[in-house]
Simulated scan of single mutants.
Amino acid sequence: MGVSVRRGPLASAIAFTALAVMAAPAHALATPVASVSASEEPTAVNTAPPVEPEETDLGPAPELEPLPGETGKPPVDRPDAEYCGPTQRIYTPSSKGAQYHAGVGPTNSNYNGTSRVARSTFTSEVTGEVGVSVTVGLSTSIDVMIAKIEAKYDVNLSAKLTAKLGNSIAVDTPPRKTTNAKYGVFRLKNTGTSYIIYSNCRTSAKKTVTSYTPLKVGWYLWES
């Protein structure tokens, strides 16, 4: 969209502002090529759309089943048998990754076809909930996993967060550029190890588990 007017300074400014903040309809995302570093401010204007997680076996938190044949007491028929206490479900975080944005609702875009910086305003159009996603192999509960990650990295996480209808953000759009905005939830990637220690001191196979846990609600912005 372009602006070509020959009026007084005040009239020109009003016409420019009214045209610049109009949001174009939502469109499909391009192929993601970059993610937001965990050390960067997530609301910064990026140069590419948000990256999708690479893992193919991500899913919701698994339902934990009772462990068969476990009393949590030392054996009485074999007093000399090795005993490690009640069965424990273990999760140990090992690597904190980047923040990944899970969008809720459509992507909105605004093209500034003028020669000046314009102010683009975007408003979320739906309400949606985003929860934890994990790969196969988690042997403990989501609450335990979150507590371990929070303690190790001094972060505040949630099992789920809600991105709500009506939230707005305003950002400058450079001349001849398009600002794209997607509302949703930033999730922290983490890798850890999960397994079970049985009362007889044996352990299950250790699994490397990747998780994406809600960190904060917000906008992911990028220019094109």
Rank of each mutant, 00 (worst) to 15 (best):
T210K: 01
P175T: 11
T56G: 02
P86H: 08
T127Q: 06
G8V: 15
G131D: 03
D77R: 07
K96V: 11
S4P: 04
T213D: 09
K206L: 14
V209T: 01
L19R: 00
A118F: 10
G97E: 06
A18P: 02
A26P: 10
S94P: 00
N200T: 07
T203K: 04
V171L: 12
N112H: 03
T213V: 14
E70H: 01
A48R: 07
V3H: 05
T127K: 03
V171E: 12
S211D: 02
L64Y: 14
A13R: 13
A181F: 01
S12G: 14
T92E: 07
S94E: 09
I169D: 13
G103A: 15
A81T: 03
Q99P: 00
G85S: 03
V51C: 05
K177P: 03
G59N: 12
L19V: 12
G128R: 04
S224G: 09
I196K: 00
T92C: 01
N108P: 03
H27F: 09
T191E: 02
T140M: 06
S158E: 10
S199T: 08
K96I: 11
P93Y: 02
G184I: 07
I196F: 12
I197N: 09
P74S: 08
G166S: 15
P53M: 04
P25I: 06
G131N: 06
G103L: 13
I146V: 09
R6T: 15
E41Y: 08
G2P: 02
V144C: 00
C84E: 14
A15T: 12
R78H: 10
L19C: 04
L19G: 04
